[in-house]
């Protein structure tokens, strides 16, 4: 990444009634990248998004868009002057305007011919030319969303923010809409920040992942790095099931049932061993454990297994063992991560 980042957030902090909603959050986003801001509801991700858009003030830290400060305790650029587009969770189309007029709303300052051309281009880029004269209440959820995105993109913002964009859709449709929409946004070369609480969705659409919890940014990185190399047990669980075993590290190494494992940045003291369930397999030899519970879940069986005094969950395909059986567990090398224990 040689170019200056489009979005740079340093130690952004926001308090509501004394409580920290966003706590010294930092992240940066380069041009043309798609980032996902992932966290459980109430973790501050939507507040952070609104702070970037200028709909929320800032109590500490700074937000820069294209290198220029837009939010800081002594600086505040109004939302309409930030060059940031925001697509709301409910799309917020104007019901008194048709699709064209909605898309043209943000570019009223352009001369008419240029404005019309821009609207036509946005509609075709999002494949909704045929809806130009339709009214918002006539559109499906997916169509409304495309109009809302076209409306935000028509201003050619430096950065496009999407707040839980796929939450209104379900199942099959959700996947299809997501796929084609993200393809269109990539084709347009947009820099995008998506807020979501769905880990599978976040990993699927994002170049960069930002994990948030309790108002803090826990980890930034590629989806694969975040998944395979979590910085903490909490970060690991944000992206999916994780087996967490308490261990004690000495000089950066912990003795575990799977042998000694070297941690990153851990030295001495309590630590967590984090293993993704799919990194464990039933094998002929390995660490011995006892089956506590077997449940059928369609594609696979879900086992609860006691390993020493820790209960872990894993999945097996094919014929499962019986409750009470002694089994052997094999660990895929390199897939157990030792992290410092927090709080």
């Amino acid at each position: 990444m040689s170019a200056a980042p489009i979005l740079e957030i340093r130690d952004a902090t926001r308090r509501f009634a004394g409580k920290l909603a966003v706590d010294h959050a930092s992240l940066s986003l380069a041009a043309g990248r798609v980032a996902a801001l992932l966290g459980p509801s109430g973790c501050g991700k939507s507040t952070l998004l609104r702070m970037i858009a200028g709909l929320e003030g800032i109590d500490g830290g700074a937000i820069h868009v294209r290198g220029a400060p837009v939010s800081a305790p002594d600086t505040f650029v109004a939302p309409e002057q930030r060059g940031v587009g925001l697509v709301f969770q409910d799309n917020a189309l104007f019901p008194h305007l048709d699709v064209q007029a909605n898309v043209a709303f943000g570019i009223a300052h352009l001369p008419r011919t240029e404005r019309n051309a821009r609207v036509a281009m946005m509609l075709s880029r999002l494949h909704i030319e045929h809806l130009a004269a339709a009214w918002p209440h006539m559109l499906s959820g997916g169509e409304q969303q495309r109009v809302a995105i076209a409306r935000a993109m028509a201003r050619e913002p430096s950065l496009l923010l999407l707040d839980e964009p796929f939450s209104g859709l379900d199942g099959d449709l959700r996947e299809r809409v997501r796929q084609s929409l993200m393809d269109d946004l990539r084709l347009a070369g947009a820099t995008v920040l998506v807020v979501t609480h769905d880990p599978a969705e976040a990993m699927m659409i994002a170049d960069d992942l930002v994990l948030m919890d309790g108002g803090r940014v826990l980890q930034c990185g590629s989806p694969r790095d975040c998944y395979e190399m979590p910085v903490s047990a909490v970060a690991a669980r944000l992206l999916g099931e994780a087996i967490v075993m308490p261990v004690t590290a000495t000089a950066g190494v912990a003795l575990t049932p799977f042998g000694p494992i070297t941690g990153r940045g851990t030295s001495n003291g309590p630590a967590d061993l984090v293993i993704r369930p799919e990194a464990l397999e039933l094998a002929a030899t390995g660490v011995r454990a006892r089956v506590e519970e077997v449940r059928f879940s369609g594609q696979s069986f879900r086992l609860s297994i006691m390993l020493g005094d820790v209960s872990i969950a894993m999945r097996v395909h094919g014929e499962p063992p019986q409750v009470g059986d002694e089994v052997c567990l094999a660990l895929t090398p390199g897939r157990a991560i030792l992290v410092a224990r927090q709080g």
Partner: peptide, 27 residues
């Protein structure tokens, strides 16, 4: 007029007063 409609008008380049004139009044 939902709050997000007014906020949408803000992010689409309208100040507070013009957002009221162009979104709230017509609706």
């Amino acid at each position: 007029v939902t709050p997000s409609m007014i906020q949408a008008a803000r992010t689409l380049g309208r100040g507070e007063t013009r957002a009221a004139l162009e979104v709230q009044l017509p609706m």
